[in-house]
Design a protein around this nucleic acid. Sequence first.
DNA 1: CGCTTGATCTCGACT
DNA 2: AGTCGAGGTCAAGCG
Lengths: 231, 231
Amino acid sequence: MLVRLVVARCQIDYAGRLTAHLPMATRVLMIKADGSVLVHSDGGSYKPLNWMSPPCSLKEATVLDEGGVERIEWTVCGAKSDDTLRILIEEIHHDSRHELGIDPGLQKDGVEKHLQELLAEHPGHLMPGLSLVRREYPTAIGPVDLMCRDQDGVSVAVEVKRRGEIDGVEQLTRYLELLNRDPLLAPVRGIFAAQEIRPQARVLAGDRGITCTVVDYDALRGLDDPTDRLF
Amino acid sequence: MLVRLVVARCQIDYAGRLTAHLPMATRVLMIKADGSVLVHSDGGSYKPLNWMSPPCSLKEATVLDEGGVERIEWTVCGAKSDDTLRILIEEIHHDSRHELGIDPGLQKDGVEKHLQELLAEHPGHLMPGLSLVRREYPTAIGPVDLMCRDQDGVSVAVEVKRRGEIDGVEQLTRYLELLNRDPLLAPVRGIFAAQEIRPQARVLAGDRGITCTVVDYDALRGLDDPTDRLF
DNA sequence: CGCTTGATCTCGACT
DNA sequence: AGTCGAGGTCAAGCG
Protein backbone atom coordinates (compact mmCIF):
# COMPACT_ATOMS: atom_id res chain seq x y z
CA MET A 1 0.00 0.00 0.00
CA LEU A 2 2.25 2.80 -1.27
CA VAL A 3 1.31 6.07 -2.91
CA ARG A 4 3.87 7.54 -5.30
CA LEU A 5 3.95 11.27 -5.91
CA VAL A 6 5.76 12.53 -8.99
CA VAL A 7 6.14 16.04 -10.35
CA ALA A 8 7.31 15.86 -13.94
CA ARG A 9 7.31 17.55 -17.33
CA CYS A 10 5.30 15.10 -19.40
CA GLN A 11 3.07 14.53 -22.41
CA ILE A 12 0.05 12.27 -22.16
CA ASP A 13 -2.17 10.30 -24.54
CA TYR A 14 -5.31 8.45 -23.55
CA ALA A 15 -7.24 6.01 -25.70
CA GLY A 16 -10.34 4.29 -24.41
CA ARG A 17 -13.94 5.43 -24.38
CA LEU A 18 -12.58 8.57 -26.03
CA THR A 19 -9.25 9.82 -27.30
CA ALA A 20 -7.45 12.60 -25.46
CA HIS A 21 -4.10 14.33 -25.59
CA LEU A 22 -2.14 16.55 -23.21
CA PRO A 23 0.82 18.50 -24.64
CA MET A 24 4.19 18.61 -22.84
CA ALA A 25 3.94 20.51 -19.53
CA THR A 26 4.78 20.14 -15.85
CA ARG A 27 2.17 18.24 -13.85
CA VAL A 28 1.58 16.29 -10.64
CA LEU A 29 1.25 12.53 -11.10
CA MET A 30 -0.23 10.43 -8.30
CA ILE A 31 0.17 6.68 -8.57
CA LYS A 32 -1.85 4.66 -6.08
CA ALA A 33 -1.18 1.17 -4.82
CA ASP A 34 -3.65 -0.43 -7.24
CA GLY A 35 -1.72 1.06 -10.19
CA SER A 36 -4.29 3.78 -10.84
CA VAL A 37 -2.90 7.10 -12.00
CA LEU A 38 -4.10 10.69 -11.55
CA VAL A 39 -2.72 13.59 -13.60
CA HIS A 40 -3.26 16.97 -11.95
CA SER A 41 -2.42 20.49 -13.02
CA ASP A 42 -2.34 23.49 -10.72
CA GLY A 43 -5.96 24.58 -10.86
CA GLY A 44 -9.18 23.18 -12.14
CA SER A 45 -11.22 21.31 -9.60
CA TYR A 46 -10.84 17.97 -7.94
CA LYS A 47 -11.09 16.22 -11.27
CA PRO A 48 -7.71 15.34 -12.77
CA LEU A 49 -6.82 16.41 -16.31
CA ASN A 50 -6.48 12.76 -17.12
CA TRP A 51 -6.51 9.53 -15.17
CA MET A 52 -6.71 5.75 -15.21
CA SER A 53 -9.19 3.97 -12.99
CA PRO A 54 -8.38 0.73 -11.21
CA PRO A 55 -7.97 -2.11 -11.83
CA CYS A 56 -5.00 -1.34 -14.03
CA SER A 57 -1.26 -1.90 -14.27
CA LEU A 58 1.63 0.49 -14.88
CA LYS A 59 4.73 -0.44 -16.87
CA GLU A 60 7.84 1.71 -17.07
CA ALA A 61 10.08 1.62 -20.16
CA THR A 62 12.74 3.74 -21.87
CA VAL A 63 11.96 4.88 -25.41
CA LEU A 64 13.65 7.15 -27.96
CA ASP A 65 11.81 10.39 -28.70
CA GLU A 66 11.80 12.22 -32.05
CA GLY A 67 15.22 13.73 -31.32
CA GLY A 68 16.72 10.33 -30.56
CA VAL A 69 16.94 11.11 -26.86
CA GLU A 70 16.19 8.41 -24.29
CA ARG A 71 12.98 9.10 -22.37
CA ILE A 72 11.02 7.33 -19.67
CA GLU A 73 7.57 6.23 -20.76
CA TRP A 74 4.83 4.89 -18.50
CA THR A 75 2.11 2.78 -20.03
CA VAL A 76 -0.99 2.20 -17.92
CA CYS A 77 -3.38 -0.48 -19.17
CA GLY A 78 -6.85 -1.22 -17.84
CA ALA A 79 -7.11 -4.78 -16.55
CA LYS A 80 -10.69 -5.32 -17.76
CA SER A 81 -11.06 -2.69 -20.47
CA ASP A 82 -8.72 -1.90 -23.35
CA ASP A 83 -8.09 1.62 -22.06
CA THR A 84 -4.50 2.81 -22.22
CA LEU A 85 -2.76 5.87 -20.83
CA ARG A 86 0.69 6.68 -22.21
CA ILE A 87 2.84 9.12 -20.25
CA LEU A 88 6.04 10.30 -21.91
CA ILE A 89 8.31 11.93 -19.34
CA GLU A 90 10.82 14.62 -20.22
CA GLU A 91 12.06 15.56 -16.77
CA ILE A 92 11.29 14.47 -13.21
CA HIS A 93 11.29 17.27 -10.61
CA HIS A 94 10.14 15.20 -7.66
CA ASP A 95 9.54 11.53 -6.90
CA SER A 96 8.56 10.12 -3.50
CA ARG A 97 6.67 7.15 -2.03
CA HIS A 98 4.52 7.07 1.09
CA GLU A 99 2.86 4.41 3.19
CA LEU A 100 -0.76 5.42 3.91
CA GLY A 101 -2.51 2.33 5.20
CA ILE A 102 -6.22 1.66 4.79
CA ASP A 103 -8.51 4.65 5.17
CA PRO A 104 -11.39 4.36 7.67
CA GLY A 105 -13.64 6.11 5.13
CA LEU A 106 -16.05 9.02 4.98
CA GLN A 107 -19.13 9.51 7.17
CA LYS A 108 -21.89 11.61 5.54
CA ASP A 109 -25.02 13.39 6.75
CA GLY A 110 -27.55 15.54 4.92
CA VAL A 111 -28.27 13.67 1.68
CA GLU A 112 -31.64 12.80 0.09
CA LYS A 113 -32.26 9.85 2.36
CA HIS A 114 -32.13 12.08 5.45
CA LEU A 115 -34.48 14.58 3.82
CA GLN A 116 -36.94 11.77 3.13
CA GLU A 117 -36.69 10.54 6.73
CA LEU A 118 -37.32 14.01 8.10
CA LEU A 119 -40.32 14.57 5.83
CA ALA A 120 -41.70 11.16 6.82
CA GLU A 121 -41.56 12.30 10.46
CA HIS A 122 -43.05 15.73 9.69
CA PRO A 123 -45.39 15.35 6.68
CA GLY A 124 -47.31 18.44 7.82
CA HIS A 125 -44.36 20.47 6.61
CA LEU A 126 -45.36 19.62 3.04
CA MET A 127 -48.99 20.60 3.46
CA PRO A 128 -51.10 21.30 6.58
CA GLY A 129 -53.03 18.23 7.68
CA LEU A 130 -50.99 15.75 5.64
CA SER A 131 -50.32 12.39 7.34
CA LEU A 132 -48.00 9.54 6.37
CA VAL A 133 -49.38 6.23 5.09
CA ARG A 134 -45.97 4.72 4.41
CA ARG A 135 -42.43 5.47 3.29
CA GLU A 136 -41.09 3.72 0.14
CA TYR A 137 -44.63 2.71 -0.89
CA PRO A 138 -44.12 -0.14 -3.37
CA THR A 139 -45.47 -0.07 -6.94
CA ALA A 140 -44.74 -2.19 -10.02
CA ILE A 141 -42.41 0.48 -11.39
CA GLY A 142 -40.57 1.24 -8.16
CA PRO A 143 -41.23 2.66 -4.71
CA VAL A 144 -42.97 6.01 -4.15
CA ASP A 145 -40.89 8.01 -1.64
CA LEU A 146 -43.82 8.95 0.61
CA MET A 147 -47.45 7.91 0.34
CA CYS A 148 -49.71 10.21 2.38
CA ARG A 149 -53.31 11.24 2.90
CA ASP A 150 -54.54 14.81 3.20
CA GLN A 151 -57.07 16.01 5.81
CA ASP A 152 -59.94 14.85 3.55
CA GLY A 153 -58.48 11.34 3.21
CA VAL A 154 -57.35 11.88 -0.38
CA SER A 155 -54.17 9.98 -1.38
CA VAL A 156 -51.06 12.08 -2.02
CA ALA A 157 -47.86 10.65 -3.56
CA VAL A 158 -44.71 12.58 -2.65
CA GLU A 159 -41.46 12.48 -4.62
CA VAL A 160 -38.50 13.76 -2.60
CA LYS A 161 -35.34 15.13 -4.25
CA ARG A 162 -32.49 17.24 -2.95
CA ARG A 163 -32.60 19.18 -6.21
CA GLY A 164 -35.83 19.04 -8.16
CA GLU A 165 -35.25 18.58 -11.88
CA ILE A 166 -37.30 17.60 -14.88
CA ASP A 167 -36.70 13.87 -14.64
CA GLY A 168 -37.95 13.84 -11.05
CA VAL A 169 -41.27 15.24 -12.31
CA GLU A 170 -41.34 12.55 -15.03
CA GLN A 171 -40.77 9.91 -12.38
CA LEU A 172 -43.61 11.19 -10.19
CA THR A 173 -45.85 11.45 -13.27
CA ARG A 174 -45.29 7.76 -14.05
CA TYR A 175 -46.16 6.85 -10.46
CA LEU A 176 -49.32 8.96 -10.50
CA GLU A 177 -50.42 7.48 -13.82
CA LEU A 178 -50.08 3.97 -12.37
CA LEU A 179 -51.58 4.74 -8.95
CA ASN A 180 -54.60 6.44 -10.50
CA ARG A 181 -55.45 3.21 -12.33
CA ASP A 182 -56.15 1.64 -8.91
CA PRO A 183 -59.80 2.40 -8.09
CA LEU A 184 -59.14 1.87 -4.35
CA LEU A 185 -56.59 4.69 -4.35
CA ALA A 186 -57.75 7.08 -7.08
CA PRO A 187 -57.76 10.01 -7.17
CA VAL A 188 -54.08 10.37 -6.20
CA ARG A 189 -52.50 13.83 -6.14
CA GLY A 190 -48.77 14.54 -6.40
CA ILE A 191 -46.32 16.66 -4.42
CA PHE A 192 -42.81 17.29 -5.70
CA ALA A 193 -40.65 18.20 -2.69
CA ALA A 194 -37.05 19.39 -2.89
CA GLN A 195 -34.61 21.79 -1.27
CA GLU A 196 -34.40 23.57 -4.62
CA ILE A 197 -36.66 23.27 -7.68
CA ARG A 198 -35.48 24.16 -11.19
CA PRO A 199 -37.73 26.46 -13.22
CA GLN A 200 -38.31 23.94 -16.03
CA ALA A 201 -39.19 21.27 -13.48
CA ARG A 202 -41.63 23.69 -11.85
CA VAL A 203 -43.29 24.45 -15.19
CA LEU A 204 -43.61 20.77 -16.13
CA ALA A 205 -45.01 19.94 -12.69
CA GLY A 206 -47.57 22.75 -12.99
CA ASP A 207 -48.59 21.44 -16.40
CA ARG A 208 -49.20 17.99 -14.88
CA GLY A 209 -51.13 19.32 -11.88
CA ILE A 210 -48.34 18.45 -9.47
CA THR A 211 -47.72 20.71 -6.46
CA CYS A 212 -44.14 21.90 -5.94
CA THR A 213 -42.89 22.39 -2.37
CA VAL A 214 -39.49 23.79 -1.47
CA VAL A 215 -38.24 22.24 1.77
CA ASP A 216 -35.93 23.89 4.30
CA TYR A 217 -33.64 21.08 5.48
CA ASP A 218 -32.16 23.00 8.41
CA ALA A 219 -35.60 24.06 9.67
CA LEU A 220 -36.85 20.47 9.42
CA ARG A 221 -33.75 19.23 11.19
CA GLY A 222 -34.41 21.73 13.94
CA LEU A 223 -37.80 20.08 14.55
CA ASP A 224 -36.12 16.70 14.69
CA ASP A 225 -34.90 15.07 17.90
CA PRO A 226 -31.15 15.77 17.85
CA THR A 227 -30.33 12.61 19.83
CA ASP A 228 -31.36 10.54 16.79
CA ARG A 229 -28.76 12.20 14.56
CA LEU A 230 -25.15 11.25 13.93
CA PHE A 231 -23.91 14.79 14.44
CA MET B 1 1.46 29.23 -9.15
CA LEU B 2 2.70 26.66 -6.67
CA VAL B 3 1.31 23.25 -5.83
CA ARG B 4 1.92 21.98 -2.32
CA LEU B 5 2.03 18.25 -1.63
CA VAL B 6 1.62 17.09 1.94
CA VAL B 7 1.45 13.59 3.38
CA ALA B 8 0.07 13.76 6.90
CA ARG B 9 -1.87 11.96 9.59
CA CYS B 10 -4.99 14.07 9.86
CA GLN B 11 -8.64 14.25 10.78
CA ILE B 12 -11.09 16.17 8.61
CA ASP B 13 -14.50 17.78 9.00
CA TYR B 14 -16.53 19.31 6.20
CA ALA B 15 -19.64 21.42 6.57
CA GLY B 16 -21.51 22.82 3.58
CA ARG B 17 -24.26 21.31 1.49
CA LEU B 18 -23.75 18.24 3.62
CA THR B 19 -21.77 17.37 6.72
CA ALA B 20 -18.91 14.86 6.50
CA HIS B 21 -16.21 13.54 8.79
CA LEU B 22 -12.95 11.64 8.22
CA PRO B 23 -11.35 10.00 11.27
CA MET B 24 -7.63 10.34 11.96
CA ALA B 25 -5.51 8.55 9.33
CA THR B 26 -2.59 9.16 6.96
CA ARG B 27 -3.58 10.84 3.68
CA VAL B 28 -2.24 12.83 0.74
CA LEU B 29 -3.19 16.51 0.76
CA MET B 30 -2.80 18.54 -2.44
CA ILE B 31 -3.07 22.31 -2.12
CA LYS B 32 -3.30 24.17 -5.40
CA ALA B 33 -2.35 27.78 -6.10
CA ASP B 34 -5.97 28.99 -5.81
CA GLY B 35 -6.14 27.59 -2.25
CA SER B 36 -8.24 24.60 -3.27
CA VAL B 37 -7.54 21.40 -1.37
CA LEU B 38 -7.78 17.73 -2.33
CA VAL B 39 -7.70 14.91 0.24
CA HIS B 40 -6.72 11.55 -1.24
CA SER B 41 -6.36 8.11 0.25
CA ASP B 42 -4.53 5.23 -1.37
CA GLY B 43 -7.29 3.74 -3.47
CA GLY B 44 -10.67 4.71 -4.72
CA SER B 45 -10.81 6.45 -8.06
CA TYR B 46 -9.93 9.98 -9.12
CA LYS B 47 -12.43 11.48 -6.70
CA PRO B 48 -10.86 12.67 -3.46
CA LEU B 49 -12.25 11.54 -0.10
CA ASN B 50 -12.93 15.19 0.58
CA TRP B 51 -12.05 18.48 -1.04
CA MET B 52 -12.63 22.21 -1.30
CA SER B 53 -13.35 23.79 -4.67
CA PRO B 54 -12.00 27.18 -5.67
CA PRO B 55 -12.44 30.02 -5.04
CA CYS B 56 -11.42 29.48 -1.43
CA SER B 57 -8.77 30.44 1.08
CA LEU B 58 -6.65 28.38 3.45
CA LYS B 59 -5.60 29.55 6.91
CA GLU B 60 -3.10 27.77 9.11
CA ALA B 61 -3.30 27.97 12.91
CA THR B 62 -2.09 26.13 15.99
CA VAL B 63 -4.76 24.77 18.30
CA LEU B 64 -4.81 22.61 21.42
CA ASP B 65 -6.34 19.16 20.97
CA GLU B 66 -8.26 17.20 23.64
CA GLY B 67 -4.99 16.09 25.26
CA GLY B 68 -3.74 19.68 25.50
CA VAL B 69 -1.12 19.07 22.78
CA GLU B 70 -0.40 21.79 20.20
CA ARG B 71 -1.58 20.80 16.73
CA ILE B 72 -1.61 22.43 13.32
CA GLU B 73 -5.09 23.09 11.97
CA TRP B 74 -5.95 24.19 8.45
CA THR B 75 -9.25 25.91 7.86
CA VAL B 76 -10.37 26.22 4.25
CA CYS B 77 -13.31 28.54 3.60
CA GLY B 78 -15.26 28.94 0.36
CA ALA B 79 -15.09 32.50 -0.91
CA LYS B 80 -18.67 32.57 -2.24
CA SER B 81 -20.33 29.80 -0.26
CA ASP B 82 -20.20 29.16 3.49
CA ASP B 83 -18.50 25.79 3.02
CA THR B 84 -15.71 25.02 5.42
CA LEU B 85 -13.14 22.26 5.55
CA ARG B 86 -11.27 21.78 8.81
CA ILE B 87 -8.09 19.69 8.74
CA LEU B 88 -6.54 18.82 12.08
CA ILE B 89 -2.98 17.57 11.57
CA GLU B 90 -1.32 15.15 13.94
CA GLU B 91 1.92 14.48 12.06
CA ILE B 92 3.44 15.62 8.78
CA HIS B 93 5.37 12.95 6.87
CA HIS B 94 6.10 14.98 3.76
CA ASP B 95 5.72 18.59 2.66
CA SER B 96 6.95 20.03 -0.66
CA ARG B 97 6.09 22.81 -3.10
CA HIS B 98 6.36 22.76 -6.87
CA GLU B 99 6.10 25.29 -9.66
CA LEU B 100 3.87 23.94 -12.44
CA GLY B 101 2.97 26.86 -14.70
CA ILE B 102 -0.21 27.09 -16.73
CA ASP B 103 -1.41 23.89 -18.33
CA PRO B 104 -2.14 23.95 -22.08
CA GLY B 105 -5.23 21.84 -21.40
CA LEU B 106 -6.85 18.68 -22.68
CA GLN B 107 -7.80 17.95 -26.29
CA LYS B 108 -10.68 15.48 -26.63
CA ASP B 109 -12.20 13.44 -29.43
CA GLY B 110 -15.06 10.98 -29.45
CA VAL B 111 -17.73 12.63 -27.32
CA GLU B 112 -21.44 12.99 -28.13
CA LYS B 113 -20.94 16.12 -30.21
CA HIS B 114 -18.63 14.27 -32.61
CA LEU B 115 -21.06 11.38 -32.86
CA GLN B 116 -23.84 13.84 -33.74
CA GLU B 117 -21.63 15.51 -36.37
CA LEU B 118 -20.74 12.19 -37.96
CA LEU B 119 -24.38 11.06 -38.06
CA ALA B 120 -25.35 14.41 -39.59
CA GLU B 121 -22.86 13.71 -42.38
CA HIS B 122 -23.96 10.09 -42.80
CA PRO B 123 -27.67 9.85 -41.88
CA GLY B 124 -27.97 6.76 -44.10
CA HIS B 125 -26.12 4.89 -41.35
CA LEU B 126 -29.20 5.22 -39.15
CA MET B 127 -31.61 3.93 -41.77
CA PRO B 128 -31.23 3.39 -45.55
CA GLY B 129 -32.54 6.36 -47.53
CA LEU B 130 -32.58 8.77 -44.59
CA SER B 131 -31.52 12.36 -45.38
CA LEU B 132 -30.74 15.30 -43.11
CA VAL B 133 -33.10 18.28 -42.86
CA ARG B 134 -31.11 20.05 -40.14
CA ARG B 135 -28.92 19.53 -37.09
CA GLU B 136 -30.09 21.02 -33.74
CA TYR B 137 -33.61 21.54 -35.10
CA PRO B 138 -35.18 24.11 -32.77
CA THR B 139 -38.40 23.49 -30.83
CA ALA B 140 -40.02 25.29 -27.90
CA ILE B 141 -38.66 22.73 -25.45
CA GLY B 142 -35.13 22.54 -26.85
CA PRO B 143 -33.32 21.46 -30.00
CA VAL B 144 -33.82 18.06 -31.64
CA ASP B 145 -30.37 16.58 -32.35
CA LEU B 146 -31.13 15.63 -35.98
CA MET B 147 -34.26 16.25 -38.00
CA CYS B 148 -34.41 14.01 -41.07
CA ARG B 149 -36.72 12.67 -43.76
CA ASP B 150 -36.95 9.06 -44.86
CA GLN B 151 -37.12 7.92 -48.49
CA ASP B 152 -40.92 8.51 -48.52
CA GLY B 153 -40.53 12.07 -47.24
CA VAL B 154 -41.77 11.24 -43.73
CA SER B 155 -40.20 13.31 -40.92
CA VAL B 156 -37.86 11.49 -38.53
CA ALA B 157 -36.56 13.04 -35.30
CA VAL B 158 -33.26 11.56 -34.09
CA GLU B 159 -31.96 11.76 -30.53
CA VAL B 160 -28.23 11.04 -30.29
CA LYS B 161 -26.58 9.80 -27.08
CA ARG B 162 -23.25 8.21 -26.33
CA ARG B 163 -25.03 5.86 -23.92
CA GLY B 164 -28.75 5.43 -24.43
CA GLU B 165 -30.68 5.50 -21.16
CA ILE B 166 -34.26 5.93 -20.07
CA ASP B 167 -34.20 9.73 -19.79
CA GLY B 168 -32.98 10.00 -23.39
CA VAL B 169 -36.11 8.13 -24.48
CA GLU B 170 -38.26 10.46 -22.32
CA GLN B 171 -36.57 13.45 -23.96
CA LEU B 172 -37.24 12.15 -27.48
CA THR B 173 -40.83 11.30 -26.47
CA ARG B 174 -41.42 14.93 -25.42
CA TYR B 175 -40.04 16.17 -28.74
CA LEU B 176 -42.20 13.75 -30.75
CA GLU B 177 -45.30 14.73 -28.79
CA LEU B 178 -44.68 18.39 -29.60
CA LEU B 179 -43.63 17.87 -33.22
CA ASN B 180 -46.65 15.70 -33.95
CA ARG B 181 -48.93 18.59 -32.97
CA ASP B 182 -47.59 20.46 -36.03
CA PRO B 183 -49.82 19.44 -38.99
CA LEU B 184 -47.10 20.46 -41.46
CA LEU B 185 -44.68 17.94 -39.95
CA ALA B 186 -46.89 15.13 -38.61
CA PRO B 187 -46.53 12.23 -38.62
CA VAL B 188 -43.03 12.36 -37.11
CA ARG B 189 -41.24 9.12 -36.27
CA GLY B 190 -38.41 8.77 -33.78
CA ILE B 191 -34.96 7.16 -33.85
CA PHE B 192 -32.93 6.74 -30.66
CA ALA B 193 -29.28 6.44 -31.71
CA ALA B 194 -26.42 5.60 -29.34
CA GLN B 195 -23.17 3.68 -29.15
CA GLU B 196 -24.76 1.55 -26.45
CA ILE B 197 -28.43 1.22 -25.47
CA ARG B 198 -29.52 0.05 -22.01
CA PRO B 199 -32.16 -2.70 -21.92
CA GLN B 200 -34.70 -0.57 -20.00
CA ALA B 201 -34.27 2.27 -22.48
CA ARG B 202 -34.78 -0.19 -25.33
CA VAL B 203 -38.00 -1.52 -23.78
CA LEU B 204 -39.40 1.96 -23.14
CA ALA B 205 -38.50 3.07 -26.68
CA GLY B 206 -40.22 -0.01 -28.12
CA ASP B 207 -43.30 0.76 -26.06
CA ARG B 208 -43.39 4.28 -27.53
CA GLY B 209 -42.86 3.15 -31.11
CA ILE B 210 -39.34 4.58 -31.22
CA THR B 211 -36.67 2.78 -33.23
CA CYS B 212 -33.37 2.04 -31.45
CA THR B 213 -30.17 2.10 -33.47
CA VAL B 214 -26.75 1.17 -32.10
CA VAL B 215 -24.07 3.22 -33.83
CA ASP B 216 -20.47 2.11 -34.44
CA TYR B 217 -18.40 5.24 -33.86
CA ASP B 218 -15.19 3.82 -35.31
CA ALA B 219 -16.92 2.59 -38.48
CA LEU B 220 -18.60 6.00 -38.93
CA ARG B 221 -15.31 7.73 -38.36
CA GLY B 222 -13.77 5.49 -41.03
CA LEU B 223 -16.32 6.82 -43.57
CA ASP B 224 -15.48 10.35 -42.58
CA ASP B 225 -12.88 12.49 -44.36
CA PRO B 226 -9.88 12.24 -42.03
CA THR B 227 -8.57 15.69 -43.07
CA ASP B 228 -11.56 17.25 -41.28
CA ARG B 229 -10.63 15.66 -37.96
CA LEU B 230 -8.36 16.89 -35.21
CA PHE B 231 -6.55 13.57 -34.90
C1' DC C 1 -24.81 35.48 -14.79
C1' DG C 2 -27.97 31.67 -14.66
C1' DC C 3 -29.60 27.53 -16.88
C1' DT C 4 -29.21 23.04 -19.28
C1' DT C 5 -26.77 19.03 -20.69
C1' DG C 6 -22.91 15.77 -21.03
C1' DA C 7 -19.40 12.97 -18.54
C1' DT C 8 -13.41 8.32 -19.62
C1' DC C 9 -18.69 11.03 -14.92
C1' DT C 10 -17.96 8.32 -9.68
C1' DC C 11 -20.23 5.97 -6.14
C1' DG C 12 -23.40 3.35 -3.66
C1' DA C 13 -27.48 0.38 -3.27
C1' DC C 14 -30.19 -3.07 -4.83
C1' DT C 15 -31.68 -6.97 -7.90
C1' DA D 1 -22.77 -8.73 -12.75
C1' DG D 2 -25.93 -5.37 -14.27
C1' DT D 3 -28.92 -1.57 -13.44
C1' DC D 4 -30.53 2.59 -11.37
C1' DG D 5 -30.34 6.93 -9.00
C1' DA D 6 -27.68 10.57 -6.42
C1' DG D 7 -23.89 13.77 -6.33
C1' DG D 8 -20.69 18.98 -2.03
C1' DT D 9 -21.45 16.11 -8.79
C1' DC D 10 -17.87 19.23 -12.41
C1' DA D 11 -17.53 21.75 -16.65
C1' DA D 12 -18.89 23.44 -21.21
C1' DG D 13 -22.05 25.83 -24.06
C1' DC D 14 -25.69 29.05 -24.79
C1' DG D 15 -29.01 32.81 -23.88
